[in-house]
């Protein structure tokens, strides 16, 4: 009989702190990607609203968030729904949207790292090549980009500011290392005001 692998966390749960900045894995969530079938978008929007009580975000680069549930835009006609463990997200979506979209469970495939604290935007900006100024990237903004060479889904979680880096599980350690190195490098003087 083969041994059954038991799940283990890709990185330690304890937050790493540098000054007032903190980096920690977010609590594990259920994640399901939703890819609309062709010509199914109006029906899918209605079905998601019915199943989750939240709408698919209307525009690219945004997320809908309410009471622990978030739905992120992750490409044309694609979204990532995230909900606390035990929500039964996949079951709810399958019943309501199975006919309108391809649903794929991503729960074990992704890890969310949260960077927060004063000047978190200046630390994140060392790694991602997009403009994080509030006029371009505000609360609940979403971007698909790369942090260094690691593909990430970036979302501003809080105005504090706090950013969620959603990353493939196998790259979570590398990204954690890179963000921590950026934190230890300090806040660039040019960013302080």
């Amino acid at each position: 009989m083969p041994d059954i692998l038991s799940p283990c966390a890709p990185i330690a749960a304890e937050p790493c702190r540098v000054g007032a900045l903190s980096l920690a894995p977010a609590p594990l969530e259920e994640m399901v990607s939703i890819s609309s079938f062709s010509n199914s978008l109006p029906a899918l929007r209605e079905a998601v609203l019915h199943a989750l009580g939240a709408s698919l975000p209307p525009a690219p680069g945004t997320a809908t968030r309410q009471q622990g549930l978030s739905i992120l835009w992750i490409g044309p006609n694609q979204w990532l729904a995230c909900a606390p463990q035990g929500s039964g997200l996949m079951e709810k979506l399958q019943v309501a949207c199975g006919a309108h979209a391809a649903l794929t469970d991503q729960t074990d495939g992704r890890v969310t790292l949260t960077l927060c604290g004063p000047y978190a935007h200046a630390i994140a900006a060392k790694l991602v090549p997009i403009d994080l100024h509030p006029r371009c990237f505000g609360l609940s903004s979403v971007a698909l980009t790369q942090a260094g060479h690691i593909p990430v889904i970036l979302m501003q979680r809080d105005r504090q500011p706090a950013y969620d880096f959603i990353v493939f599980r196998s790259l979570a350690r590398s990204l954690h290392h890179d963000i921590l190195a950026a934190m230890r490098g300090g806040i660039p003087e040019s960013e302080q005001n």
Binding site: G61, P129, T145
Partner: peptide
């Protein structure tokens, strides 16, 4: 058209 202006390294 979806992500706005990005550096060529993303393409």
């Amino acid at each position: 058209p979806y992500c706005c202006t990005r550096g060529v390294e993303e393409f």
